[in-house]
Simulated scan of single mutants.
Amino acid sequence: MAATRAAGAVAVEGRLLRALAGLRLVVLLNAWGVGLWTLDGAARPAGVVACLVLMTVWTGVATWGYASPARRGPVLLGLDLAVALGVLLAGPWVKGPDFAATVPGFWIMAVLFAWAIHLRTAGGLVAGVVLAGVDLALRPDVTLTVYGNAFLLVVGGPVVGYLTGSLQQMADERDRAERAAATAAERARLARAVHDGTLQVLALVQRRAGELGPHATDLGRLAGEQERGLRRLIRAQDAVAAGGSPGAGGDGSPYGPYGPDGSALAPGEPVDVAALLASLGARPGVEVVLPGGVVPAPPVTAHELVAAVVACLDNVARHVGDDARAWVLLEDLGDEVAVSVRDEGPGIAEGRLDDAAAQGRLGVRESVCGRVADLGGTATLDTGRHGTTWRLAVPREHA
Rank of each mutant, 00 (worst) to 15 (best):
A239Y: 01
H215Q: 11
G47Y: 08
R318P: 02
L265T: 03
E336D: 10
G148V: 00
L330T: 01
A317G: 14
V12S: 00
D272S: 14
G268M: 08
F106S: 14
R385C: 03
A307N: 02
L333R: 15
A357T: 06
A43Y: 08
T301I: 13
G321Y: 10
R189P: 01
L23A: 15
D382L: 13
A31P: 09
A242T: 08
A275K: 02
L152H: 01
D332C: 08
A239I: 02
T63M: 11
R385F: 06
R391Q: 12
E269H: 12
R207Y: 12
A90N: 03
A3E: 03
V194N: 14
G220Q: 09
C369T: 08
R192A: 15
L280R: 07
A266H: 12
W115R: 04
W93S: 07
A274L: 04
A264Y: 11
L290W: 06
S263E: 12
V129M: 06
S245P: 00
A116E: 02
C369R: 10
A3F: 08
L152V: 07
P346R: 13
A338S: 11
V26Q: 07
W115S: 10
H319P: 03
V12Y: 02
S279F: 04
W93R: 14
A356F: 00
R187F: 15
G8H: 10
L153W: 10
N149F: 15
D261C: 10
P246D: 01
L276D: 06
G249D: 04
G292L: 13
V57R: 09
G292Y: 05
W390M: 01
D343E: 04
G47E: 05
R207G: 06
A9L: 09
D335Q: 11
E225L: 15
I234M: 09
G157R: 02
V134T: 07
A216N: 05
G351L: 03
E173P: 00
V271N: 01
G22K: 05
A43S: 14
A31R: 04
R187L: 15
A185Q: 15
A150F: 05
C51F: 03
G124K: 00
V94A: 14
G334E: 00
V295L: 11
V142H: 09
P346L: 06
W37I: 00
L88N: 06
E336S: 10
L36P: 00
L81Y: 03
L89I: 14
Q168W: 03
A216K: 05
V368C: 11
